[in-house]
Design a protein around this nucleic acid. Structure first.
Lengths: 238, 238
DNA sequence: AAGAATCTGTGATTTAAATCAGATATTTAA
DNA sequence: TTAAATATCTGATTTAAATCACAGATTCTT
């Protein structure tokens, strides 16, 4: 596990400035909340949380990318989320005594901010506007899950792969002359598990997309989107 | 659309008494909130909300069952949720200006309670404990969606059908001598769409489960669970 | 109650993805 | 740097579900 450490760069404040959750607060309130926050760092591959562990904090990703996953009955790893900078998780355990229902693993060096259940409780009771912001963020998360859910329900695998690529382009991409460069946070196997398809099927789809000129695989961790319009058509967003 | 009408049985209060969301409130506070609430009724088949419509209220189901759905690019109806008594929806539109992202249709005669954006806002600002309750309920909803999400990722269709039957047994079932009787809220086609599989495939799975003695189809709207242990094994909950 | 419309079940066939297998490429570790 | 381990790609085959087709059952309508 990562060691507890205070962030000397930001005096414990930088993270909450970056988090939309707290964007509505005044400088003074931010300062107060910042004093509650703990920081931790994790190396790539380390587990932030294990399934069944009891947790008592809201976790905010300050830097890096993590995956939240479970194992299916068949032993396959099912990725539920990828969280990156500014995202938070653990909210479902804050007002219940549920144990963690998934594992969370660092996919890169990761820095997180922790706000314990009791501290967050205090913040919410004294700052209802933060509660409203949190409700709003949870609403967004639900809306996003509804989209994912719908795309899982799509039987057409081409559409699902296209959707994933577009999603990744938005979240992990940077613009470049020939098209958006996606810096993939997970392996082909990870992507296949995320979509609930076989690794080989994903490879074949990516090869086909490349043959058709929709994408170009620069190296194993980098894909360039050459024709996002066609991807959008495939994804059914036309 | 259903006509606006006040509920003469409960003096506008019964619904919020039933909703876990407001269970932490005092009699006095409940009374205050009750005065904000509007009631509507819908016949089976009526649309409560259409995709793209702008909504400004939290909807609480007082009686009946509704389905929330979208159409896929292929024109298939994808059911996202079934909501019944005590459930609420519309929370994602409360603090954003998003249009409705799904349609909601009554599957039976339905009575709903409406609390507008501005009224709910007022309640949340003055009763932070309701905000915390709402956050908690949204957390539960997310946890539930994660489960659904995982079961969608399962490639084994038997497991998904078994999961659906167990879920329905819990939500729409009543205990009976030979096993839980499920009063199905949706047709075979609806169930198939919910799972993202073909209607015929669902029929075949149900027939197989019946041959194997796991369930018994009493009539088209009623299934009896004869061997829930085996269903749980299939669902991978062992 | 009778006919029409809709829904459901099941066989035959097609199709797409899973699995199996092995080659190739990439990363890690010595 | 080189060998070992890991990840990826691609072809061949199998398998499960989709689709097609139609009969039977249920429900809606008048």
């Amino acid at each position: 596990m990562g060691s507890l450490q205070y962030c000397e760069h930001c005096g414990n404040r930088l993270c909450i400035y970056r988090v939309p959750l707290f964007s509505s607060l005044s400088e003074e309130n931010l300062h107060q909340i910042a004093s509650y926050i703990q920081h931790r760092s994790f190396e790539k591959g380390e587990l932030l949380i294990s399934e069944g562990e009891s947790t008592d904090s809201l976790v905010i990703i300050h830097q890096g990318v993590v995956k939240a996953f479970r194992y299916t009955a068949a032993g396959r790893e099912q990725i539920l989320y990828l969280f990156s900078e500014g995202d938070f998780f653990g909210e479902q355990y804050l007002f219940s005594n549920l144990k963690a229902t998934y594992n969370v693993e660092a996919l890169s060096p990761v820095k997180i901010c922790l706000l314990t259940k009791s501290h967050l409780h205090k913040v919410l009771l004294t700052h209802p506007e933060v509660a409203i912001k949190l409700i709003s963020e949870l609403g967004k998360r639900i809306a996003q899950m509804e989209n994912t859910f719908q795309s899982m329900g799509i039987r057409d695998v081409d559409a699902r792969v296209a959707t994933l690529l577009l999603d990744f382009a938005e979240r992990y991409g940077r613009e470049a002359p020939g098209g958006t460069l996606i810096n993939l946070p997970i392996s082909r196997e990870g992507m296949a598990n995320y979509l609930g398809i076989a690794r080989e099927t994903l490879s074949r789809k990516l090869s086909k997309f490349e043959d058709d000129g929709l994408i170009q695989s620069l190296d194993l961790k980098t894909i360039q989107v050459k024709d996002s319009d066609s991807l959008e058509d495939l994804a059914g967003l036309s």
